[in-house]
Amino acid sequence: MMHRKVVLRVVSKFLIPPILLFALYVQFHGDFGPGGGFQAGVIFGSGFILYAILFGVDMAKRVLPPWSTRLLLVVGVLTYGLTGVAGLLLGGNYLDYNVLAHDPLHGQHYGILIVELGVGITVAAAMITIFNVFAGQTGGD
């Protein structure tokens, strides 16, 4: 796509790892600071999209093939949904995290962590999938 933009490519190569790291920070620090699954997923997705913009969609697809993002999309939703079902099986209500651990507070903590992870995976996969499909229309140049 932009084979001669050396500055952009070098700077983005420096920036993409911190972006992905920041996304993980937002994901797992959402209990304490602003952020959570949605924001983390979007940031993670935008890191990949930046890569795809600069190095071409085909290169990005080599890193993260389309089937894997589609799989992750489903995995994210199922993570959320099945956490609720796990609460049911352990004798609570649907999406009741108190029963996930012996201590209700810990149960809430685990529940929220898993659920936010599900949200993050879904959002990131959805963003990457939508971008790939949009960008792939032009023939991936």
Partner: peptide, 16 residues
């Protein structure tokens, strides 16, 4: 819920 960030606990737990 035991979360310092109330937004998160409302979002993920009360409003699951």
């Amino acid at each position: 819920v035991g979360m310092p960030n109330i937004v998160t606990s409302v979002l993920a737990s009360y409003r699951g």
